[in-house]
Design a protein around this nucleic acid. Sequence first.
DNA 1: ACTGTATTTCCTGCTT
DNA 2: AAAGCAGGAAATACAG
Length: 364
Amino acid sequence: MAGSCEISNIFSNYISAMYQPEEAQPPMELLAHLGKEDNLALPAETTAEKPAWFGELPYFWSKAQVLEWISYHVEKNKYDASAINFSCCNMDGYTLCHCTQEQLRLIFGPLGDELYTRLHEIVSVSDELTWIIDLLEKEDMSSQEIFQDSELGNSCTKESLEEMKSTNPFYQADFSYVSGALSPGSSDISVSGTGMSHSPNSQDSGGSDIDPDPTEVKLFSSDDGFADYDKEDVKHGKRKRGRPRKFSKENRDCLETKKSKHSPRGTHLWEFIRDILLHPELNEGLMKWEDRREGVFKFLRSEAVAQLWGQKKKNSSMTYEKLSRAMRYYYKREILERVDGRRLVYKFGKNSSGWKEEEVLNRN
DNA sequence: ACTGTATTTCCTGCTT
DNA sequence: AAAGCAGGAAATACAG
């Protein structure tokens, strides 16, 4: 029930971390000046504490929110607003998100680069959380037992889902389920109060995780990373990363319908793992800290995490076995340290970062 | 074109 | 017996 709210909060917190509270006050006088254009007036209450764009995906920003966000950065950077061609600022968030860096530079001058960077920081945050959305959707759908034939990968259901995705113009933003744009009545998309329905088997008992059927996750493998969307199709002739798989008949059938996939660089496995751990309200049941201070953590639902990683990399055949091999490579690089004798338990090493409580708090 | 990185995939053997 | 761990080997996409 509280799922969508929780994600909204998470997103809001992310943005809060990016924009420190004391700086988050948009300059009222500037806003008033900018707001003279017809439909750009800002609701006063939205600027009283947090800007109107706070906690909402850029894709869904209204023209006013876009303007407010721009104003915030004008003020923050002490930029001479007279150099800006305000006639070009009358755009909503969706339009803004599709502006190239050059376009923004054209409109905002040198500030355009800053705006482009900041905007894509926010967008990348939403992209980082894609897996959470996917998971929530998956959990919810499985709870509704819609995909009873997951073992066989019911193609009709798959297709209808894909169609559902493609007809949703905001699907690629991946937050369409959680933003305010979602109708309150659609709470069935969200999950139970635990963030995820807790599997009775997900207890801390040696990692025997009964996960949803991997094929079920396949059905939901989303194409995150809107920027790379089109490139995938162009490159469909390329082979998949890694050693070629030995094809069993089962695998052949599975792969025949699989899209070409490779993931853009940017998020490493250990960062992905770290990010799961940093969101306890969402990762409940997937992973947990064993010793927060020391960076010791444990997989509770190893296969589910592997599937999520696979989803992120557009690789539906990811397993914990493969994921764990990649994890073991981190020992040598001291990104992870060995924890002997404890199954599914790892520890962050000195070459990892961003997981310590101080680092998380100072994240800016 | 080449090289290094970061996986991905498969494998054998061992441990829990 | 099954699951997980360890680590070698090979393959690959991608960035520089």
